[in-house]
Simulated assay, not measured.
Amino acid sequence: MMYFVYILYSISKNKYYVGSCEDIAKRLAKHNTNHAGFTGKTGDWTVKHTEQYTNKADALKREKQIKAWKSRVMIEKLINKI
């Protein structure tokens, strides 16, 4: 089983969202449904970046690392591979 760290972007919110999962397509569909929470209501989230890991612990560690940056600039550098 593979695990993924992903970064989504919403045009309407002009925000990024960082998460991890086993199935990116299924998770993206969930983010784009009308639900309570940060990703709910917009329905325009798109995948901007993914990383693949062989175990969940490594994926969660990387997700927490990216979230700890608290930096749009760093996220955009990662996405753009600068």
Rank of each mutant, 00 (worst) to 15 (best):
H49G: 04
H35F: 01
N34Q: 13
E63A: 11
D23K: 15
I75Q: 03
L28V: 14
E63K: 10
H31Y: 06
I7V: 15
G19D: 12
K61W: 03
R27N: 15
D44Q: 05
S20Y: 13
Y6W: 04
K67H: 10
H31M: 02
N80H: 12
S10E: 04
V18G: 07
E51G: 09
K67F: 06
K81L: 13
K48R: 15
K81A: 10
N34Y: 05
M74Q: 14
H49C: 05
N32D: 07
K13E: 05
E51C: 10
L28R: 12
E22L: 11
T42M: 02
K81Q: 13
R72Y: 11
R72I: 15
G43N: 08
G40L: 06
Y9V: 05
C21D: 12
S12W: 01
M2W: 09
C21R: 01
G37R: 01
H35E: 01
K81F: 06
Y17P: 09
Q52M: 14
M74H: 06
K56T: 00
T42P: 00
L8H: 10
T54S: 14
Y6S: 00
V18Q: 05
R62T: 09
A36M: 10
A36I: 15
R62M: 09
Y9T: 06
L60G: 09
V18E: 05
I79D: 05
Y6F: 13
K81V: 13
F4S: 07
T33R: 08
D58C: 06
I79A: 08
I7D: 03
V5A: 02
I82D: 09
I66K: 02
E76N: 15
A68S: 15
T39Q: 08
T33C: 08
A57N: 08
K41M: 05
K30R: 12
L60A: 07
A57M: 02
C21W: 04
E51Y: 11
K41P: 00
K70G: 14
G37K: 01
L8N: 14
G43Y: 06
C21Y: 06
M1Q: 13
E63H: 11
G43S: 08
Y3T: 01
G37T: 04
H35P: 00
L78H: 04
T46H: 02
M1D: 10
I7L: 10
Y3N: 04
N34F: 13
R27A: 06
G37E: 01
K70W: 03
V47H: 03
T46K: 12
M1F: 11
Y9G: 07
D44F: 04
Y17G: 10
I7K: 11
H49F: 12
I24K: 03
Q65A: 06
F4E: 02
G19W: 10
K64W: 07
Y9D: 03
V73Y: 11
G37I: 03
S71D: 03
I24W: 13
E76Y: 13
A59V: 02
T39Y: 05
H35Q: 06
V73M: 11
V47G: 02
K67E: 12
S10Y: 01
I75K: 08
Y6T: 00
K64T: 12
A59M: 10
A29V: 12
Y16G: 01
N32A: 07
K56Q: 13
Y16E: 01
K70N: 14
Q52R: 14
Y53A: 03
